[in-house]
């Protein structure tokens, strides 16, 4: 038996997207193992969101191969994608909440619609409440997304992403356009979501602090806050990726990231 921690969850093998002169993603290759955290930086339009959409099968890769949970999903028909997607939680850049549904219906949506989950109907309500309590929005069940602030909507999006307890979580710019305090709260929730269930996490962000928090802190179950990663060999196994014009400009650990000489990459590292 191989070590479950070494099992790759997501593999991009030489993946490109685009045609002729419009190539949006060029020969992207990387592996993400179970329990790892991947932080993706990059300028606007460098293909970060596209990368997540390919990983979710919302767009087909033009060339190269994508593997998810050990299965080759490159040419998977849409109907079979739904089974794979039920193991992934996602927060979209704009939240992607259904604005004609209440918060309760929004968070319950994947529970009721992911075919693979088959949740009995009486269990939906408690799970929804539990997930909303997790992001401290248990009182908003009957509200509509338009009645909430931007930060609250982002938190509802997180509640909806984690409600199915997925193995892989994808966050697209969870802190974009938020004030620093709200942004830090959101990141703390993402750390919590990662550590409580040991989910593999991919996060696209513009803020260097986001990556730093995710790398250096763990969720503290005793007091509900964050604590620095211990020295007893515990590691969040965090890696950084920097995208530039559709290609990977950097991929590696934080030490290499901070020391990288490339001026483009250095812009995203702390200095």
């Amino acid at each position: 038996m191989s070590n479950p921690q070494e099992e790759p969850i997501l593999i991009f093998d030489d993946v490109s997207f685009g045609f002729d002169d419009n190539v949006f993603l060029r020969q992207v290759s990387f592996e993400l193992r179970r329990g790892e955290t991947l932080i993706i930086h990059g300028a606007a339009g460098s293909g970060k969101t596209l990368l997540l959409k390919l990983a979710l099968g919302l767009l087909p890769a033009t060339s190269g191969r994508i593997h998810l949970f050990g299965q080759d999903v490159t040419r998977l028909p849409e109907r079979e994608w739904f089974d794979v997607r039920s193991r992934i939680g996602v927060l979209f850049q704009e939240g992607g909440l259904f604005d004609s549904f209440t918060i309760e219906e929004n968070v319950g949506y994947p529970l009721l619609n992911q075919r693979l989950l088959k949740i009995p109907e009486e269990q939906v309500q408690p799970k929804v409440e539990q997930s909303l309590d997790f992001v401290e929005l248990g009182h908003t069940l009957e509200k509509f997304p338009s009645e909430l602030s931007g930060g609250m909507r982002r938190r509802v999006g997180i509640a909806r992403a984690i409600v199915t307890q997925p193995e892989l979580l994808l966050y697209d710019s969870p802190t974009a356009g938020l004030d620093p305090i709200t942004a830090n709260n959101i990141i703390a929730l993402i750390v919590k979501g990662r550590d409580v269930r040991g989910a593999t996490t991919v996060i696209v962000t513009h803020r260097h602090q986001d990556g730093e928090i995710l790398e250096r802190y763990r969720y503290n179950e005793k007091d509900g806050g964050l604590r620095p990663v211990g020295s007893n060999g515990d590691s969040t196994r965090t890696r950084y990726m920097v995208m530039k014009e559709g290609a990977i400009a950097f991929l590696g650990a934080s030490f290499d990231f901070d020391c990288c000489k490339d001026p483009y990459v250095a812009k995203f590292a702390s200095r």
Partner: peptide, 10 residues
């Protein structure tokens, strides 16, 4: 992105 969300959520 609600259409994408719909696909992603099953």
């Amino acid at each position: 992105e609600q259409i994408d969300a719909m696909r992603a959520l099953g």
